Computed example of a mutant assay.
Amino acid sequence: MPTIQEFRLPDAGEGLTEAEIVQWHVAPGDAVRVNQAIVEIETAKSLVELPSPWDGTVVEILVGEGATVDVGTPIVRIETAGEPEPGGSVDPAAAALETAAEVDPEAVPASDDAAGGGAVLVGYGTGGGAGGGGRRRRRTAAAGGSPAAPAPAPAPAAPPPRSPRLR
């Protein structure tokens, strides 16, 4: 049974409270896929393309280009084939993380910060530092390989042959 989902303007980062709709990449009647860029917004800090959290068809664009809207405001309605979500809307960051987890479970950050307290857009991370805080996957025999081992150091190259000395 088709369901109408409302996509709400997410917090594009750093606690910003509003953004301007710069350009829509879709129109009513267009089919959209998960993670397809549907709109470009501008915040006080940057231009950001927002991805669709659903597969479906654009039913209605609720905010025109050039308008400034508050975070949490519905900006587009998309008809999906799935069951309705509680409240009829979704947190785009959580949906993007769920989609990433379905495709590659290792793509989801190990911390709960990304799915909980603050919205995180796909590809933008949490800004939590430069350290490698994510999980690393180990290859196992069941996964088609042996545990990861360091690559052997290449053997030193033999020196070139010396030419005979001429007297």
Rank of each mutant, 00 (worst) to 15 (best):
R33Q: 13
V120C: 10
A67V: 12
P86R: 06
A44D: 00
P159D: 05
A158R: 13
V58L: 07
V120F: 09
A119S: 14
S146V: 14
I41F: 03
G118K: 13
G13R: 02
G134C: 01
A143P: 08
E106R: 03
E102A: 13
A115L: 11
G131H: 11
V69P: 00
P53V: 06
G56Q: 04
G72V: 00
E65T: 12
A158L: 14
P86F: 02
R137L: 12
A148R: 07
E14L: 10
E102T: 12
D55K: 06
D113L: 13
R77C: 07
R167G: 15
L97C: 03
V122T: 15
P92N: 12
A12D: 11
A155Y: 14
G29Y: 05
A93C: 15
V26S: 01
V32L: 00
G128S: 14
A110S: 09
V32E: 03
E79A: 08
L16S: 04
G131W: 12
T73N: 00
A19L: 06
G125W: 01
V108S: 04
A148N: 06
E83N: 09
G116Y: 04
G118T: 15
P150G: 07
P156A: 06
Q36K: 08
T17F: 04
A110Q: 07
A37Y: 12
V22I: 11
L16Q: 06
V71R: 02
L16Y: 06
E98R: 11
Q5C: 10
E6Q: 07
V71K: 02
L47G: 09
A130D: 10
G29E: 03
L50C: 09
A130Y: 12
V76M: 01
D70N: 00
T80Q: 05
G129R: 00
P164G: 11
A143C: 11
V90G: 08
P147Y: 09
A142R: 08
G127Q: 07
A100S: 14
A81H: 13
Y124S: 12
G117S: 12
T99C: 14
E14M: 11
V58P: 01
A67D: 15
W24E: 01
P2D: 10
A31D: 12
V26R: 01
G144T: 08
G125M: 03
I4S: 12
V22A: 05
E18H: 01
V76T: 03
E102M: 13
Y124P: 02
L62M: 08
V120H: 03
G29A: 09
E79Q: 10
A153Q: 14
I78N: 00
P150H: 07
G127H: 12
A95P: 04
W54K: 03
S46H: 07
D30C: 08
P105T: 06
T43Y: 02
A12K: 03
T3R: 09
Q36W: 02
P109S: 05
M1R: 15
G88N: 00
E14P: 05
D104M: 11
R136C: 02
R137K: 13
E40R: 10
T57F: 08
A44I: 00
V69F: 04
G116W: 04
M1N: 13
V71A: 02
S111R: 08
A101I: 10
V59M: 09
L121G: 15
E98W: 08
P154S: 06
V69R: 03
D11H: 05
A141G: 14
G123V: 12
T68Q: 07
Q36V: 04
L62R: 06
P28Y: 06
